[in-house]
């Protein structure tokens, strides 16, 4: 039996938001937790993020937005994933996101939202507990 492979995660910054402290900290935290991490860098369109996710064959996309544009950008990404038949990729997000927006994002297919104050450990535990490796 081959050893179980590592979870692959794409950390992505959609839109024009330049606040990347959180994205870079969580990318490093995930890497230190033993995941394989790819970071898109800044200013990615939803199309670019979905293309990278498919090309890199990731299990998870972690989106970070502090600009208030999450309500458009996150659902757009899950929509594109469905169109590409890649909606088995788990999408999670974090950033400056009002709590009242979370149900709507969940409905759009974003599985979890991590708001400010989240410990790295919590996010790691969520990924380990909820993400299924893709085929």
């Amino acid at each position: 039996m081959s050893p179980k492979r590592k979870i692959r995660i794409l950390i992505a910054k959609p839109g024009l938001d330049g606040h990347d402290r959180g994205a870079r900290v969580i990318a490093r935290g995930f890497r230190d937790a033993g995941f394989e991490v790819i970071y898109t860098g800044l200013h990615q369109t939803p199309e670019q993020i979905v293309a990278t996710a498919i090309q890199e064959d990731v299990d998870v996309i972690g989106l970070s937005a502090l600009s208030g544009a999450h309500d458009y950008l996150f659902p757009r990404i899950t929509e594109l994933l469905r169109e590409e038949g890649a909606d088995d990729i788990t999408v999670i997000g974090g950033g400056i996101i009002p709590e009242e927006d979370i149900p709507e994002l969940n409905k759009a297919g974003v599985k979890a939202i991590f708001t400010p104050g989240t410990r790295i450990e919590e996010a790691v535990a969520w990924v380990k507990g909820h993400v299924k490796l893709r085929g």
Partner: peptide, 9 residues
Amino acid sequence: MAKGEVGKC
């Protein structure tokens, strides 16, 4: 490029 961002931040 401005989609979803107008007036938000």
